[in-house]
């Protein structure tokens, strides 16, 4: 379905370095901000190399327990390299934490 292949997964799987899943809680302010922050960093620094799923735990609570998510918002880096963080909690306004979590610190200044 063409309409489903959205801008956050623009590339084929082999080119991707980051498969991300963001757990949010409806339209709470931190959730909204988390979506915006993750999207901004990814488009700026990982364009064409990432996929992003946004899961609303109100709509799909089962998935939260599958991924052992206990606090919302949580960003999970599924395709995890050694030494790269698996999950981050919060609205991710602290860009340096988000960049470190995505293993992007080496690529440029914080």
């Amino acid at each position: 379905m063409e309409a489903n292949s959205i801008s956050s997964r623009p590339s084929r799987a082999q080119n991707r370095t980051h498969d991300l899943r963001l757990y949010v809680a409806g339209s709470s302010p931190r959730s909204l901000r988390a979506v915006q922050n993750v999207k901004r960093i990814c488009e700026n620094e990982l364009a064409g190399k990432y996929s992003l799923e946004v899961v609303d735990i109100y709509q799909d609570p089962r998935r939260a327990t599958e991924d052992q998510v206990i606090a919302i918002p949580t960003l999970i880096n599924i395709k995890q390299a050694p030494g790269v963080l698996r999950r981050l909690i919060g609205d991710l306004s602290d860009t340096s934490v988000l960049r470190k979590g995505l293993g992007l610190l080496e690529a440029g200044p914080a």
Binding site: P61, T65, I89
Partner: peptide, 24 residues
């Protein structure tokens, strides 16, 4: 980081596995 985020109030919601399934 998880503990810090929860302590500092950056989390909106908590998911708990209850006997009747996951609850938010």
């Amino acid at each position: 980081e998880t503990i810090r985020a929860i302590y500092s109030g950056e989390a909106d919601a908590v998911v708990v596995n209850s006997p009747s399934g996951p609850r938010v």
